[in-house]
Write a protein that binds this DNA or RNA. Structure first.
Length: 315
RNA sequence: CGCGGGGUAGAGCAGUUGGCAGCUCGCCAGGCCCAUAACCUGGAGGUCGCCGGUUCAAAUCCGGCCCCCGCAA
């Protein structure tokens, strides 16, 4: 039971699809045996409130793995203990794991985190990297301690941020980089080849969880900042503004060094047959947008049916 | 039964006191011009989401269904 044919006994804990590639890699790798998968309970999702399983649960079912979905992970402490896991690996679980559980596995708990710690602890870390105009971000695997993303660092890998990257595309890049990174790091760690390095907490900062209202655009900010903001808010919560009492999502936009002094921030106007909005400094060319109740449209399509959009104040 | 918006020409929209179906753009043809994404003229293209009902007459009123979307979760 202890030495399971030389395979390390791993408990995988995760919910969102961010951890999926790493999860699948762990399943396939012959050096590991996933003895348990822990994921969030099925929840009603979407307009129809259909009860849906997490991506991790669906993948676990396909591989006939044992799954637990406790409301609070502490409730299954005994079960975890009985399995005598070598390692617990956590990726995008969306629940804090108490210290009592962190200490159960022989080699502790590792966490896959989507930033270069100690920069950006917390939730909206991918968005934070774009908002702050970072040229690169990456993945970090830490050995978890009782704090939030404060444990010592085992390894990091860098992913560059492109000028066109949204939180969504960056999320995909990071997710795609995770399988090799995860497998390599775990193997080195279990072989005793890694010495965890304490984080320099003086350089740490937290990226708080975003809500829908965080997507509201403040047009008095410079266009260049708003362009980043719009990329960071995509695909969720999506940057949005008000127009005639209705919400309008700004899906994508590009800052342009044009400024019309008589226009106040939030004023819409035509620019080379395109749609532009005056910002605090310079203007944004809106490439695609979505009116509430309608589907997302390129601005040229949108304007065909909403000529009165031009010359209005947004916000 | 969580709240709400919407399905009309290839695209985006207008059109509900019921009365031959419209606008902008695109497309095709022709014209103007040194030339053009500009301009002018002409043209093609629609079972008005589906089914049923009321009516002399339904995109429009009534009933049922399907699909898309915003909010909330």
């Amino acid at each position: 039971m202890t030495d399971n044919n030389g395979k390390a006994k791993i408990i995988f804990i995760g919910t969102a699809d961010f951890g999926l590639p790493a999860f699948k890699a762990l399943i396939k790798d012959g050096d590991f045996e996933i003895v348990l998968v822990i994921t969030q309970p099925d929840k009603p999702i979407g307009r129809k409130q259909i009860v849906t399983s997490s991506p991790i649960k669906i993948a676990a079912e396909k591989n006939d793995l044992i799954i637990l979905q406790p409301e609070h992970i502490i409730d299954i402490k005994e079960k975890i203990s009985l399995l005598k896991p070598d390692l617990i690996f956590v990726a995008a679980y969306a629940q804090l794991i108490p210290e009592e559980i962190l200490n159960l596995p022989k080699y502790g708990c590792l966490n896959l985190h989507a930033s270069l710690l100690p920069k950006y602890r917390g939730s909206a870390i991918i968005q934070a990297a774009i908002l702050n105009n970072d040229e690169q971000t990456g993945l970090t695997i830490i050995k978890m301690d009782k704090g939030l993303d404060t444990g010592p660092i085992l390894a990091q890998t860098v992913v560059s941020i492109g000028k066109e990257d949204t939180a969504g595309t960056l999320y995909d890049k990071l997710s795609a980089a995770s399988p090799d990174f995860t497998i390599t790091t775990i193997k080195k760690y279990l072989a005793g080849k890694i010495t965890p390095a304490t984080q320099n907490s003086s350089q740490a900062n937290y990226a708080k969880e975003l809500t829908k209202s965080d997507g509201l655009i403040n047009w008095s900010k410079p266009a260049i900042n708003l362009e980043r903001f719009i990329r960071a808010m995509n695909p969720w919560p999506i940057a949005w503004t008000w127009w005639k009492g209705k919400q309008v999502k700004i899906i994508s936009a590009q800052s342009q060094p044009i400024e019309i002094n008589s226009y106040k921030p939030g004023k819409t106007f035509k620019y080379n047959s395109g749609l532009a909005v005056q910002c605090g400094q310079n203007a944004l060319i809106i490439k695609s947008l979505q009116l509430e109740g309608k589907s997302a449209l390129l601005s040229e399509d949108f304007l065909r049916g909403h000529e009165d959009f031009i010359g209005n104040m947004l916000g």
